[in-house]
Design a protein around this nucleic acid. Structure first.
Lengths: 243, 243
DNA sequence: GGTTGATGATGATCTATGTTAGTGTTCTTG
DNA sequence: CAAGAACACTAACATAGATCATCATCAACC
């Protein structure tokens, strides 16, 4: 049961909500279709009208929007267990796109199956709603991160957030984690230029806060990084027990 | 019935969802407590654990967060009919604050009454969920607005958004609307300095796009303003019929 | 009805970040 | 294994927007 394909979803829900065995079971018996996607592939696009939601099983994804003249804004990063397009259950038309960052395995679950689940298990409906609200909370934090923090703090904050979310899933016990993100992608997520992200990255390294081996991050000084990024995880609304 | 105190809430829900008479009735019979608040007063604060939600009946409110050294980021503006702290139904602790912009009348509805309503009227639960998702969509747009648009476009976009939301409620038939917001507040909403907001405001006026009589905005050239702000209302997910 | 405080409007100056134009290194792929 | 693409990194220069300081206007209030 632990090895069930949808297990990442259950694990994720448990980081924000306490599920009973029966409820876990109900989630795990959802019908789904697995697809393996290459890196940099769109999963859904702005203006699409999806009839299913996708669960990230393995890999990384991100949401984005293209502004004038091809300026891209990355809106969020997604890790295994996330359902980044859950909103399509209630909002017909996508207002942004969703793509993979690396080769990623996703499970597609038909809307009607999810609707049925939410109907049958009101507590799970609550958990999903909660998920969506946390999503919104993260966007709020990003608004402030981009609007009111200088570049160095902005970068530190993003790294703290990703690490905290990954650790809450139990995907990192020490202080290192995969970060399959290019500096260009980081720049698009933070409203900066790639050149400046590079400079800030170097500054964090020079300060002994992080190391950046190939496609990963090792946090050398967690307290220091939190300090620089003014990071307080309250906005992630993660259950105390898994934080 | 039309003059019921909670009517603004019904009117608002109808901009995003089609309500039956029975459902309207269920909303209007919610128990509530009205309070008149002065300008600049907090309604709920970060870290609070509310046991009720508030509906803006009359006036304007905004959500905000204080970052390092008192730098404030305004996260959203709220108009009559909005329930800005609906999230407290599912997220115990507030991750931001909510305050009035001008003297404002709000109705407080106990969580348990809302829970009961959502249980009794699943379609209304859907409408509320939809509301919350639209909220998130607006935050996403703001992330991009702040991250990827220059100051002039950013300002134009914010004005377009507020106007569109106000007009969807039927609170403005021509092209003028109340905007009881100081340039400082606009600055905090857009991640700019007040001085620069002032300059951009003057530029919009000089371009014949808007006029700004006391505490209000008159849009002189709607198409032009949309153009400058790259405004596409799709992200507001407003029903076609009221747009 | 004058005083006070908030807000809007300016100008001079400074700086964080953007832009452009590269170089070198590593990964992919034929 | 060679060739090409991504990607990280660097430097010189450009600029949007921040800061600081001042003054004008207007509303609120004793």
């Amino acid at each position: 049961m632990t090895a069930h394909i949808l297990h990442p979803l259950v694990r994720k829900l448990q980081t924000v909500f306490d599920l009973s065995e029966k409820e876990k079971e109900a989630v795990l018996t959802l019908p789904f279709l697995v697809r393996e996607l290459k890196a940099g592939q769109d999963i859904v696009r702005e203006q699409d009208r999806p009839s299913q939601c996708c669960v990230i099983l393995d890999g990384f994804a991100f949401r984005y929007k293209i502004f004038d003249e091809g300026r891209r804004q990355i809106l969020s990063f997604h890790i295994p267990g996330d359902i980044p397009d859950l909103q399509s259950l209630h909002l017909e038309v996508m207002d942004h796109s969703l793509a993979t960052l690396v080769p990623t395995r996703v499970a597609f679950i038909p809307h009607h199956a999810l609707q049925a689940l939410l109907h049958a298990e009101p507590k799970i409906a609550g958990a999903f709603w909660r998920e969506a609200l946390i999503d919104a909370s993260i966007f709020r934090e990003w608004v402030g991160n981009i609007g009111r923090r200088p570049a160095l703090a902005r970068l530190a904050h993003v790294l703290c957030e990703i690490f905290t979310r990954i650790r809450a899933l139990g995907l990192s016990d020490d202080h290192s984690f995969p970060l399959p993100v290019t500096q260009e992608e980081l720049a698009d997520a933070m409203g900066l230029s790639t050149v400046h992200v590079n400079r800030m990255m170097m500054e964090l390294r020079a300060g002994g806060l992080i190391r950046t081996p190939r496609r990963a991050i090792i946090i050398e000084n967690w307290e220091g990084l939190k300090e620089v990024g003014q990071f307080d995880p309250a906005y992630l609304h993660i259950r105390r027990s898994v934080l």
